[in-house]
Write a protein that binds this DNA or RNA. Structure first.
Length: 554
RNA sequence: GCGCCUGUAGCUCAGCUGGAUAGAGCAACGGACUUCUAAUCCGUAGGUCGCGGGUUCGAAUCCCUCCAGGCGUACCA
C-alpha cells in the first residue's frame, strides 16, 4: 500500500514539473509513513514540506498543486487531505484493505518474502568463537542475531552464506593445548604448576581424561613444548564438535566453518602482504612489519608480522576477508561482540587497502548480555571456567524462549537475560504471548473443522463483512508485514520482527476476546475464518524467520 | 587523556535514517471466564525524552558543551 501511494505521489510530482510549477531538478525521494493518529488518515507524506525549502514556496501551496495532480486510477483512496504545516493525509477506502488479503492467500508461506536482494551474494560471518571452550551465554546473542539476519536476508532475495571463522592458530590455542597437557600430567600423578593464562574449566579435565583413556598412560617423558600441538589438536577438535552440537540444539547452522589454518596452508598471508606492499601500505620497523592503517583513518598503524616472524591475528583476518571477496561475495557482514568495536577502523582499513569499498562491509555490534537469576547477576569468566554455557541455557529455558529473548532488543543495546524470567511460562514472557496467538487460531480452526465449516478461499469471501475497526486494524497490520521484513533486511535489525509480532498478537488477542469468530451467521463466520487464517500465516512466517516454533496448541 | 556505544514512565525497552498530542510490556490499582484455549482481554494511573545551548516551518531523533554508566585504547584474540 505504501509503495502504491509513493507511486501516485511521484507521478503527481512529475506532472507538476511538466506543468512548470517548479524545476525538475531537486525532486525529493518520496516518503510515505503510517499515520499515527486516525484523524490523519492511514498514510501521510511530508513531500510538500521537504520540497518547500528547495523551491522556495509555501508548503501548503505545493500540497494543493500536488493533490490536484494525484490521479487515483485504481480508486484506492477515499480522500486526500492537506493538514497541519503541509502534510498530505491519505485516507484509503475501507474496502480496499481486504483486497490485500488476496496476496496472503496466494503467497501463503512465502508471504513476506521478496526478491529485492536480487540474488546479491552476501557472506555473513558470526559467532566465530575460539574453540577454547564451550559457547557461553555471551555467544548466544550473537548467534541468534546472526542467524536471524541471515534468515531475513535469505527471505529478501539475497544469496546468503553463513560462516563461522575458526580461530585455530595462535597463542590462545597453544594455551588450550598446554592446559590440557597439564591436566593430563596431573592425572598421571605429577604435581604441576598451573599458570594464570591457562584455561581452568572442568571441560579441560574432561578432555585430559578422555585422552588418557584413549591413549593410555604412557605420556612421553618429554615435558617440553613439543607435545602441545598434539593436545591442542585434540582439544580444539573435540571442543569444536561440541560447539557445533550446541549451536544445532539452538537452531543455528552454518554453511561453512572456515579454518584460520587453511589461510596459512594456502599461503594466503604471503600473497596478502605482497598485495598490501604493492599499494605502499607496508613498512618495516625494528624487525616488525607494519600496516599503515592510519592512511584510512585508524588512530595508529598496526603490526601485521611480529618480531618473532609470526603474523598477528589482524593479518590473518584481513587475509580471510580478502578471501571472502575472492570467492565472489560483494557484500560482507560481520557480527561481533561490542567489546571489539575498536577493531572496526582497522578492518575497514584492511579492505580499503585491497581496493574494496568501505560500505561493502557492515559490522553488527552485539552488546554484552547480563545474565541474571531472579534479578541477581551471575558473574562469568571464560578463563576461570565460571560461566553459564549456551547449552545450559537452552536446556533450562528452551530454544524458543531463549531465542526470542535475545531478539527483543536492538543489538547494540545492553540486554538483561534473566534465567528465571525466561523460563517462566507467564505473561512476563512475550514469546508465549505470540505463540499463544498462533495456537489459539489453530484451535479455532480445529473447532471449525469439527463443525464441518470449510475455510473459504478469497473469492468466496464477502469482504465487506470485515468492517469492524479491529478487523481493519488486523488487515492493515498483516498487509504491512512485507514492509517490516524489507525494513529489517535494509537495516539488519531483527528486533523489528519481534516488536511487530507483539503488536500483531496483541491485536489478535483483543479481537478474539471481543468478538466470536465462529457464529451462527455463515457468511460472517466464513469471512472471519478467512481473516484469522491470514493472521496465522503471517505470525507463522514471522516466527519462522526468528527460528521460533509456531505451536498448533499450547 | 582519546575514541565508540548508551541515557525515554517505578523496571525493561521501542520510537520506522527530522514530522502532527512521545508508545509498548512488566510492576501497581480496578474489572471480565456456563462461550472458538484466561499463557488472554478491558479500564485507571504513570514523562522536564540525562542537563544546557544551537540548526529550522518542526528535534527524543541532527550539531556542540557538560553530567552519568558501559566498552575499547596490544607485536591478545
Amino acid at each position: 500500500m505504501r509503495s502504491r501511494l509513493a507511486v501516485l505521489i511521484e507521478k503527481a510530482l512529475r506532472a507538476c514539473c511538466d506543468a512548470g510549477f517548479w524545476e525538475p531538478g531537486a525532486l525529493p525521494f518520496v516518503e510515505v509513513e503510517l499515520a499515527k493518529d486516525p484523524a490523519h488518515g492511514d498514510y501521510a507524506s511530508n513531500v510538500a514540506m521537504v520540497l518547500a525549502s528547495r523551491v522556495g514556496r509555501k508548503p501548503r501551496e505545493i500540497a494543493e498543486r500536488l493533490v490536484g495532480q494525484i490521479h487515483d486510477t485504481d480508486k484506492i483512496l477515499q480522500k486526500v487531505e492537506i493538514a497541519g504545516p503541509g502534510f498530505l493525509n491519505f485516507f484509503v477506502r475501507e474496502d480496499v484493505w481486504a483486497t490485500l488479503l488476496k496476496d496472503i492467500e496466494r503467497q501463503a508461506d512465502r508471504y513476506g518474502m521478496s526478491d529485492s536482494g536480487k540474488g546479491r551474494k552476501v557472506l555473513l560471518e558470526f559467532v566465530s568463537a575460539n574453540p577454547t571452550g564451550p559457547l557461553h551465554i555471551g555467544h548466544a546473542r550473537g548467534a541468534v542475531v546472526g542467524d536471524v539476519i541471515a534468515n531475513i536476508l535469505a527471505a529478501s532475495g539475497y544469496d546468503i552464506s553463513r560462516e563461522y571463522y575458526i580461530n585455530d592458530a595462535g597463542n590462545q590455542m597453544a594455551n588450550l593445548g598446554r592446559s590440557v597437557l597439564l591436566r593430563y600430567r596431573q592425572l598421571l600423578g605429577e604435581t604441576v604448576h598451573f599458570p594464570e593464562n591457562c584455561y581452568r574449566g572442568d571441560y579441560i579435565k574432561t578432555l585430559a581424561a578422555e585422552l588418557l583413556d584413549r591413549e593410555g598412560p604412557p605420556c612421553p617423558n618429554d615435558n617440553g613444548e613439543s607435545l602441545i600441538p598434539y593436545f591442542t589438536d585434540y582439544a580444539a577438535g573435540a571442543i569444536l564438535e561440541g560447539i557445533k552440537e550446541d549451536l544445532g540444539a539452538f537452531g543455528v547452522t552454518f554453511d561453512r566453518y572456515f579454518s584460520e589454518r587453511d589461510l596459512y596452508e594456502d599461503r594466503r598471508l604471503d600473497s596478502l602482504l605482497e598485495d598490501l606492499e604493492k599499494g605502499g601500505f607496508i613498512y618495516r620497523e625494528e624487525e616488525t612489519l607494519w600496516f599503515r592503517t592510519t592512511a584510512f583513518g585508524d588512530e595508529k598503524d598496526r603490526v601485521v608480522v611480529r618480531k618473532t616472524g609470526e603474523p598477528t591475528y589482524f593479518a590473518a583476518d584481513i587475509a580471510y576477508h580478502q578471501n571472502k571477496y575472492e570467492r565472489g561475495f560483494d557484500f560482507l557482514i560481520d557480527v561481533w561482540g561490542a567489546d571489539h568495536h575498536g577493531y572496526i577502523p582497522r578492518i575497514l582499513a584492511g579492505i580499503q587497502a585491497l581496493d574494496h569499498d568501505k560500505d561493502s562491509l557492515r559490522v553488527i555490534l552485539v552488546q554484552l548480555v547480563n545474565l541474571l537469576r531472579d534479578g541477581k547477576p551471575i558473574a562469568m569468566s571464560t578463563r576461570s571456567g565460571e560461566f553459564v554455557t549456551l547449552r545450559e541455557v537452552v536446556d533450562e529455558v528452551g530454544r524458543d524462549a531463549a531465542r526470542y529473548n535475545f531478539l527483543m532488543r536492538r543489538s547494540d543495546s545492553h540486554l538483561d537475560f534473566d534465567l528465571e524470567l525466561a523460563k517462566r511460562q507467564s505473561n512476563e514472557n512475550p514469546v508465549y504471548y505470540v505463540q499463544y496467538a498462533h495456537a489459539r487460531i489453530a484451535s479455532v480452526l480445529r473447532t471449525a473443522g469439527q463443525r464441518n465449516l470449510v475455510i473459504p478461499s478469497y473469492s468466496e469471501v464477502d469482504r465487506t463483512l470485515l468492517k469492524l475497526p479491529e478487523e481493519i486494524g488486523l488487515i492493515k497490520t498483516i498487509t504491512r508485514f512485507p514492509e517490516i521484513v524489507e525494513g529489517a533486511a535494509r537495516t539488519l535489525e531483527p528486533h523489528r520482527l519481534t516488536f511487530y509480532l507483539n503488536d500483531l498478537a496483541g491485536l489478535f488477542h483483543s479481537y478474539y476476546n471481543k468478538n466470536r469468530i465462529i457464529s451462527e451467521e455463515g457468511p460472517l463466520t466464513a469471512a472471519r475464518l478467512f481473516l484469522v487464517v491470514a493472521v496465522k500465516i503471517v505470525i507463522g512466517n514471522a516466527l519462522k524467520l526468528l527460528g521460533v516454533s509456531s505451536p498448533e496448541s499450547m
